[in-house]
């Protein structure tokens, strides 16, 4: 029971901290999904290069202008190519990327289930 009380109080603490939540979730979501062209291993969110700093401003501006997430992506894709997006879209180039793992999962499932038996002889 003690444990349970502890847990409840934990939950309550979390509720108090709720005010921490960010106002600019969309902004973060977008810049985390953009790859920096200067330090090429980092996202724009993580990077502090001049390019990334400017791109952060651009994204914020575009959000203020009322562009949707998709519009911002396509705007940047036109300028810098698909490479800038960390989340590749499903198209003819990426069918295999998205579907192959799932396909392998299904094949694995078939192999495993073929060896099952429901009743024990």
């Amino acid at each position: 029971m003690k444990f349970f009380k502890l847990l409840i109080s934990f939950v309550l603490i979390f509720n108090l901290n709720n005010t921490y939540a960010n106002d600019n979730d969309l902004n973060h979501k977008i810049i985390k999904n953009l790859r920096c062209l200067v330090c090429q291993g980092q996202s724009v969110y993580d990077s502090d290069s001049d390019f990334a700093i400017s791109l952060k401003i651009v994204v914020a501006n575009k959000i203020n202008e009322g562009l949707t997430e998709k519009q911002i992506y396509s705007y940047l894709k036109k300028k810098y190519g698909e490479w800038i997006l960390y989340d590749p879209e499903l198209n003819k180039n990426t069918y295999l990327l998205w579907l192959l793992p799932v396909l392998l999962f299904l094949i694995g499932g078939v192999i495993i289930f073929k060896r099952f038996k429901i009743k024990n002889k």
Partner: peptide, 13 residues
């Protein structure tokens, strides 16, 4: 001043 135009041009640096 803030690098926004460079991005409009599609520049990196």
């Amino acid at each position: 001043i803030d690098g926004v135009q460079a991005i409009e041009w599609g520049a990196v640096g």
